[in-house]
């Protein structure tokens, strides 16, 4: 079988890279700078996801279906977000409120007011 003779990546090396990136993402958050935290958390996560998808998921063997799968996942994600966002991104709805959001909004307004005067 030709698949048995396919070239495999060096899994140990990839694992070591993933561990290294994990250390970077944790260390980045400890610096305490918001932008650095965001970059290290999400940026590193993207690189990690790429490494796993590229090397550990045998995507090359099922190349034909991959674009469809990725497209379907993206469409479903957009669909879910567009259906859920009008509710979950608001501080209050028809029959409900989020007290913590409202308190935060009041505090924000007060600080804004104080800053102007």
């Amino acid at each position: 079988m030709s698949e048995e003779h396919m070239h495999h990546p060096n899994y140990l090396k990839i694992w070591a890279m993933l561990v290294g990136l994990l250390v970077v993402s944790v260390a980045g958050a400890m610096v305490g700078i918001r932008v650095v935290t965001l970059i290290t958390a999400f940026g590193v996560a993207c690189v990690q996801a790429y490494l796993v998808a590229k090397n550990c998921m045998h995507i090359g063997a099922a190349r034909r279906f991959v674009p469809y799968l990725v497209a379907t996942a993206l469409v479903l994600m957009l669909l879910f977000f567009s259906g859920a966002a009008p509710d979950v991104m608001k501080p209050a709805g028809v029959n409900w409120v989020k007290p913590a959001w409202q308190e935060a909004a009041v505090e924000h307004d007060v600080s804004l007011h104080e800053a102007r005067h």
Partner: peptide, 9 residues
């Protein structure tokens, strides 16, 4: 919701 979460989510 008391701590910023969302039960409808």
């Amino acid at each position: 919701p008391d701590r910023g979460g969302d039960p409808i989510l």
